[in-house]
Simulated assay, not measured.
Amino acid sequence: MGYLTTDKKKVTARTLLEMKAAGEKITQMTAYDYTTAGIIDAAGIDSILVGDSASNVMAGNQDTTPITVDEMIYHARAVVRACRRCLVVCDMPFGSYQVSREDGIRNAIRIIKETGAGAVKMEGGTEIVDTVRGIIAAGIPVVGHLGLTPQSIHRLGGYGLRAKEEAEAQKLMDDALALDAAGVSAITLEKVPAALAAKVTTLVKAATIGIGAGNGTDGQVLVYADALGMTQGFKPKFLRHFANVHQCMTDGVQAYIRCVKESTFPSDAESY
């Protein structure tokens, strides 16, 4: 059955393929720091994505394009230090592989060498396949990303559903098959029709991980701050809140303020 979630062995990119073959759903969530990653890993997640969404979640940028390779390495290194079991995938940020194949390979090698991550993730299809092949030939597992690709948000013109028209759906399938033939371990499918994502999942050997792509993919990924109810005012159709950390933290901070103002903290027992 391969490495199932009850198995304590380290999850690798190869594990994702074994889980797909075994019919076990893959769980993935983002993280960008040591403390959060340690909690998510210990909870039993299969994979942590150090997403370029750190640009939004951690730095407050409007989109993912400003984040740099150096910043991704900083976040990924902290996450890897915290993780004992799960696979850590690091996004290659905008500009790190679009210029040339050589740049892409060089930056992927640097990310893996300096972070210890188990794979890199890249957005795009046939246009990046040569670079993907080169990175895999260098010994680095690659995760693809199709559908809504946030690094191309200025060209796409927004965060709407992708591949709803026949031509774009066919392009997505062609891209998925090209990435699969190149040897990617997994493909993220973001914000595409559920039926299309399910079809792609049956066509490729790689594991598919959906976000806003229905339940027919091999796994699911969410940004931890969204899934755990930390962000406010962001509630797309595909997002479910599995906790209300925003309220919990607010209550805790207010309790701290109250106790300090009332001089009940620290108590004699909490003083030296």
Score class of each variant (00 low, 15 high):
Q170V: 13
A43V: 06
V245C: 09
Y32L: 05
A178H: 03
V120C: 06
P236N: 13
V245N: 03
I26F: 03
Y224R: 01
V184H: 08
Q254F: 10
E165W: 09
I209G: 02
M122Q: 04
V11K: 02
L161S: 07
A269Y: 06
A198T: 14
A195M: 04
V89Y: 01
R77E: 11
Y3W: 03
V79L: 12
T231R: 13
T131R: 06
T208H: 08
V184I: 08
M29P: 00
D33I: 07
T35E: 14
N244L: 05
A243V: 04
G60V: 08
D268R: 14
E166Y: 11
T6P: 00
E24P: 00
K205I: 00
K10F: 07
P150W: 04
A269V: 05
M92E: 03
Y3V: 13
Q170N: 13
A225P: 00
G60L: 11
A137S: 14
Q220D: 03
L156A: 10
I26T: 00
A119N: 01
A31T: 02
D268L: 14
L203M: 15
V142M: 02
T264A: 06
M230K: 07
A169Q: 10
M92S: 02
D175P: 03
D41M: 09
S271A: 12
G157I: 09
G212P: 12
I109K: 15
D52E: 08
K9R: 15
L17C: 00
S55Q: 13
I67R: 11
V129I: 07
K10P: 02
S263P: 00
T35P: 00
K9L: 05
T231Y: 12
G158N: 11
P141D: 05
M29R: 01
V204T: 04
I39T: 07
F238N: 10
Q247E: 15
K237F: 09
S47F: 04
T68S: 15
L222K: 06
V132R: 02
E165G: 10
I109P: 02
F234H: 14
D7E: 08
H241M: 13
A59K: 13
R84D: 15
G219P: 01
I135N: 01
K205G: 13
A176G: 00
D175G: 06
D180T: 05
M72L: 14
K25W: 00
G51A: 13
N56W: 00
R77H: 10
G147S: 11
V223E: 11
V57H: 09
Y272Q: 03
P193H: 09
K20W: 02
G212Y: 09
C86Q: 05
K205F: 00
K205H: 12
T231G: 01
Y224F: 15
A21D: 10
V184L: 05
T65W: 08
V11R: 08
F238V: 10
A43L: 14
A227G: 12
F234W: 15
V88G: 08
M249D: 03
I112N: 01
Q62H: 10
S267A: 14
S53F: 11
L189Q: 09
T36A: 12
G139Q: 06
A37F: 02
D52G: 12
G183M: 05
L239W: 11
C86R: 11
P193T: 11
S271V: 02
Y256A: 12
T64H: 05
A137E: 15
F234K: 06
F94W: 12
Y34P: 00
A167M: 07
T231M: 15
K20L: 01
C248L: 15
V11T: 12
R77C: 01
Y97V: 09
T5L: 06
T64D: 07
